[in-house]
Design a protein around this nucleic acid. Structure first.
Lengths: 234, 234
DNA sequence: CATGAATTCGATCATCGATCGAATAAGATC
DNA sequence: GATCTTATTCGATCGATGATCGAATTCATG
């Protein structure tokens, strides 16, 4: 236990009364912004499981206690990271004449942004989106739908419904746990056709589609339902 | 309760070389079924956060090592619990003439069952539903939709889409974290109307609805979209 | 009764989020 | 410039979690 030299070279000890060289504050003081940036870097490169407070401290050359001076909790960090990334979403000027196309593209864009940041979705599920960037997005969505003639109550609920489907879709596409896909397919293929006639008959259709195709299907399903709610006299 | 030493009474020590009374195997041997039952009890009474391996061992008068002999991991336990509870879902004989009503009721029933078991949904999100009870449900869903005239590919994707929306809805309704609702409402109410005209105008509509109403809205949205895919010549 | 497989159990590991109190730097006041 | 106040950093540590190891104990079989 004495040779505590971890990896490489031996460092001769200095007298303990020597002051260590400038152990004080970092050149560039830590900020919430720097923490969030580092968190996004870790999230993108190594995933949400690797985004621990210790790993974050390592990235910023500090310890966990320092980080907790800037952020209230890890959950709060998650909200900060999520809203920060949502700033990447670009919103066009609402054009009621092609609102379906704009809303669909909007959904696809959010889907893409979330997918581009690994397990980011795990900081979104089951939380109230109240950060500045999410407020901007909600406002845009309400604006577009109301201009399109969607009744107020429906417009208020629609964003929620689309958001839920979107979150769950991204989660499904990014979940790396569970058994390997081939094993799942093999299990489904081994089911007795007499007890599961439809399931076995549609096996290829159940497994061949990409995550994007499934997302697109549900998105269009919701959009078709939304079109049926248009008030002809806005 | 005659000679029974309660928790408060003093218990005189026995010589340490005396063998403790029957420290061996429990009367009724542990089984996966018993573990799952106990897990459901804890989940219902105390929530998913309280469902730890240690708490489960306590419930069954054993330790974590014993449990890990019966289950592979906590994730596997989650799948077992989830599929076990899904056994509560009752499926009627598919009747194509009223398939919309049956499918809606089915969705509402699953929603209710999951809500009735606290944070059960946290063992569902992002996982492949492959347990026996979920297979039964998938088979039923495919059967009903195909009989109703929904094209095969759409039937295969629709269950997925509904399931994603359903999971996210239950999660939203059961998530207890985050800031208190009144604080959220206050924050939204404090937004500047000139920058968020739609958001502030629809404030009451955004916050007054119950979780069930929001779920019902999305469910009908999806159903309306699904009706548009019916193939008139099944 | 003896032997091998099945099962239980205490002790322990590594990791996580979070907190405490001391130490240090920056900013204000005289 | 010296001194005091405030803001920020940091090492050490806490309690809890999922998981594993090896020894001990029971069951099933001959």
């Amino acid at each position: 236990m004495s040779g505590d030299t971890t990896d490489t070279a031996y460092v001769p000890p200095e007298p303990p009364w020597w002051r260590p060289p400038r152990p004080g504050r970092r050149r560039q003081p830590l900020s919430r912004r720097a923490i969030v940036d580092a968190a996004v870097r870790i999230l993108d490169a190594e995933g949400a499981d690797a985004l621990t407070v210790r790993r974050l401290g390592e990235e910023l050359n500090t310890g966990s206690a320092t980080l907790y001076w800037h952020i209230g909790s890890k959950e709060e960090l998650g909200e900060l990271v999520y809203d920060h990334v949502m700033g990447e979403v670009e919103l066009p000027e609402p054009d009621p004449s092609r609102w379906q196309e704009q809303f669909l593209d909007f959904g696809r864009q959010v889907y893409g942004v979330m997918l581009a940041h690994n397990d980011l979705v795990r900081f979104s599920l089951g939380r109230v989106p109240a950060g500045p960037n999410m407020l901007r997005i909600i406002e845009w969505s309400l604006d577009l739908l109301r201009q399109a003639g969607v009744p107020d109550q429906a417009a208020a609920y629609a964003g929620d419904a689309f958001g839920r489907f979107l979150d769950a879709s991204v989660l499904e596409a990014t979940s790396r746990g569970g058994p390997p896909p081939e094993q799942v397919g093999q299990h489904f293929a081994s089911l007795p056709p007499e007890r599961f006639p439809n399931l076995t008959a549609l096996l290829p259709l159940l497994f061949t589609g990409t995550d994007e195709e499934r997302f697109e299907f549900g998105l269009r399903l919701l959009m078709r339902g939304l079109e049926g709610l248009i008030d002809p006299a806005p």
